[in-house]
Design a binder for these strands. Structure first.
Length: 749
DNA sequence: CGTAATACCCTTTTT
DNA sequence: GGGTATTACG
């Protein structure tokens, strides 16, 4: 088992008790270390598998770990807890939710559903969605939860101090009550509630401390406050906690991940053994050298330098394209060229990475045009599609009668003649009778003022859901879905909606197939009594809520992978293209506001570079359409430090063939930044276009307004045409302005 | 109540 | 530019 490990890896694997921090650089074989250690604990130390808890961030990582452990042990380690943080939280709550005011069959809400709930909550407490964007409110609440700040604490902290945040506090309270009332939890609750559970229940906590005698955590650099606290609680006694991570790959700060968790691990767990894995088994020295040079620019990190024994390697190519279409075309043709020249390459050996999902469209067009097989990971997720959400809303409502989000979504889908007015009347009736909407719908004939059509529609709807609910425990999720879609005649309804509808119908069929394939054991090992607590449907819905598009990525499919840099973490490809390397796009405009953000962007770049095993390409487009506008960007400053390590090419077309091959990097890359946007052929200079590379306004900057006078920029939101700033004016207070109209000028005083 | 026109958001990344 | 949410009419 230990044979093929290097001395450091071996030290990590052989670590037995006490805290241990494994600083595992990119491509250093950390998954191998984790899985081997699990096996080592079981085989060499005789630790029962069910006393081991291994946590990851993605289902895919958990699955991969499980598979590797199974193959190493030659069988399924019975009872081992191996899952994502969220699935762990869900599993704990499936056992203990009643202690906190939910039932064991609670519903899990995704971010979209949360947003709708926030909107309703804002309406109920009269917070204007135009003044407080529901999205911003949701993100703020999510942030609070990830920092374990409850409603009370939030309110006390911000009441009377900050107008926006004190309003958020009000919404937060209403939102949380609404969730509880509906027996629903959002993603963050899956982390927060287990912490609350253990904090309030020392006896239960000590039982779990014994159960989880050994805890292993993957991607530790991405843990947030709540996750840290959960680990701290569970590991406090025995301290048998091994965390594996790489501070240089911390790219989820925006989601509350706290890089300090890994940087300060030795302080949190004194006496921790520290193992550094600096041997890279993935990339050529050319690629690794570039990665090292890039990440060295960051200040806030644990210094380390990755080494490799691999020799040689193709040079890194930097490509300048005229537009995003040009960029896509060049990438597609280069892939074809490489595949011709290197028969050992398969489509699955290539990945095209980008900063934002929106960039995938232009690339996709080019791939389709040339008939090059590809798979896009991320973007509009399967389970977020409208038709899928509609059908799932039915299932949620059948599973959980209190799920009002599902109710609202499908009460009039398909059309039952129930509009806003009827729903309003129903709500009034329900409130006065002290019953919920669903029950009120069943008593439609008693609701005053309803038109006969609506009355009939409501009865019909209530009857339909009621019938399935009665049989809920007897049917599988797949059976319910099939019958339901048949009964509602959904498939042909969708098909009659035209070409889009046909695709929707196909998606619905795919959902049925997924439900039929589903086995409850995928979600969790069912304990005694669970059979009565949950239906197959309940667990299918949990599965659907926690699965992501990333989990569908097929690394062996005969197709090029297109994905965001974030999604690419943890993967590797022989050939990698990092596209869209323009100032303002990567690094993203907003990150100029704070060095911390810029460093995170650079880590993201580092993650991208280190995905590549053999060949690495970086591309940028001089002109790119973003949100309906043409933006002009110059080469990303991230590439500057690589100037003498890359070969520069240009895609400029001269009589049908590419030119510019082999131009040496230095002078051409460095001359880029000085070029003015208007140099580019065909760029209209009417002021309607934006240079995306430089923030025109920066947080904290002083500006002057015609009527409001001088002030300081407090916030920046939107971009391009919709760029908005919030300015704290010295005399006029805070104003939110559309930059386009505001006529702000810099205040030089 | 349903459809069509319109307004408005968005583009950072995800469990 | 594209998609959704809101409003305007039939």
């Amino acid at each position: 088992m230990l044979q093929s490990l290097n001395p450091e890896q071996r030290r990590a694997v052989e670590h037995f008790e006490g805290p241990c921090l494994v600083l595992a650089g990119a491509g250093s074989g950390k998954t191998r270390v984790l899985t081997t250690r699990v096996c080592h604990l079981v085989m060499e130390h005789g630790v029962p598998p069910d006393r081991i808890l291994a946590v990851t961030f993605t289902n895919k990582a958990a699955q991969e770990m499980r598979e590797r452990v199974v193959s190493m042990l030659g069988g399924e380690p019975k009872g081992i807890w191996m899952s994502t943080f969220h699935a762990l939280g869900a599993r704990l709550m499936r056992r203990h939710a009643p202690g906190l005011g939910w039932t064991r069959a609670f519903t899990i809400r995704d971010a979209d559903q949360s947003l709708r709930e926030i909107k309703k909550a804002q309406k109920s407490v009269d917070v204007d969605p135009l003044q407080c964007s529901p999205r911003a409110v949701r993100d703020r609440i999510s942030d609070a939860k990830n920092h374990l700040i409850g409603v009370e604490e939030f309110r006390e902290t911000y009441a009377g101090r900050d107008l926006f945040l004190s309003r958020v506090a009000i919404v937060y309270g209403a939102y949380q009550e609404a969730l509880k009332r509906q027996d629903a939890m959002d993603f963050d609750d899956l982390l927060v509630l287990p912490v609350r559970l253990f904090e309030n229940n020392p006896e239960l906590l000590s039982r779990y401390r014994q159960l989880f005698s050994f805890i292993l955590v993957d991607e530790y650099q991405d843990t947030n406050r709540a996750q840290f606290r959960l680990l701290e609680l569970l590991a406090a006694d025995h301290r048998n906690l091994m965390v594996v991570g790489d501070d240089d790959q911390s790219i989820y700060g925006w989601r509350g991940a706290d890089i300090r968790n890994i940087l300060d691990f030795e302080k949190s767990f004194p006496g921790a053994e520290v193992v550094r894995l600096e041997q890279n088994y993935r990339s050529t020295p050319v690629i690794l050298g570039a990665a090292n040079v890039v990440i060295r620019q960051n200040v806030d990190r644990k210094a380390k330098t990755m080494r490799t024994d691999v020799v040689g390697g193709a040079p890194i190519t930097l490509v300048e394209a005229a537009s995003e279409a040009d960029e896509g075309r060049w990438i597609v043709e280069e892939i074809e060229r490489l595949m011709l020249a290197n028969p050992e390459y398969d489509h699955s050996d290539f990945a095209v990475l980008y900063r934002t999902n929106a960039q995938s469209r232009a690339l996709e067009d080019r791939f389709r045009l040339r008939g090059l097989p590809y798979q896009i990971v991320g973007g509009v997720r399967f389970y977020e599609r409208r038709e899928i959400q509609d059908v799932l809303a039915y299932l949620r409502l059948i599973s959980n009668p209190r799920d009002m989000d599902g109710f609202d979504r499908v009460v009039n889908y398909p059309r039952r003649g129930i509009g806003k007015t009827s729903l309003g009347r129903l709500a009034v009736f329900a409130r006065e009778a002290g019953i919920d909407l669903f029950e009120a719908a069943g008593r439609g004939e008693e609701v005053p003022g309803l038109v006969p059509g609506a009355r009939r529609g409501l009865k019909e709807f209530a009857g339909l859901i009621g019938r399935y609910r009665e049989r809920g425990g007897l049917l599988t999720a797949g059976e319910i879905l099939e019958e339901l879609i048949e009964e509602l005649d959904l498939e042909s309804r969708l098909r009659s909606e035209g070409p889009d509808g046909r695709e929707r119908a196909e998606n619905v069929l795919e959902l049925i197939a997924a439900a039929r394939d589903f086995e409850a054991e995928q979600v969790m090992e069912l304990d005694e009594g669970d059979r009565d607590a949950f239906t197959d449907l309940d667990l299918f819905l949990q599965h659907v809520a926690l699965v992501t598009d990333l989990d569908f990525h097929d690394s062996v499919a005969d197709a090029v992978t297109l994905m965001t840099l974030h999604s690419a973490k943890g993967l590797e490809f022989p050939v990698v293209f990092i596209s869209g390397l323009e100032e303002g796009l990567f690094p993203l405009l907003r990150s100029y506001e704070e060095p911390r953000l810029l460093e995170e962007e650079r880590r993201l770049f580092y993650v991208g570079i280190t995905r590549a095993m053999e060949r690495l390409y970086m591309t940028h487009a001089r002109r790119r359409r973003r949100a309906g506008e043409t933006m002009f960007g110059r080469l990303s400053t991230f590439v500057n430090v690589l100037a003498d390590r890359v070969e520069t090419k240009s895609t400029d077309l001269v009589s049908g063939s590419w030119t510019g091959y082999g131009r040496r990097g230095r002078e051409s890359t460095q001359s880029q930044p000085s070029r003015a946007p208007t140099d580019y052929a065909g760029s209209p200079d009417d002021g309607s276009d934006f240079n995306q590379d430089r923030p025109r306004y920066v947080k904290g900057e002083r500006v002057v307004h015609q009527t409001f006078g001088s002030g300081t920029i407090a916030e920046i939101s939107g971009f391009g045409r919709d760029l908005k700033v919030a300015v704290d004016f010295d005399t006029a207070g805070r104003k939110k302005l559309l930059v386009r109209y505001a006529g702000l000028e810099r205040d030089y005083l």
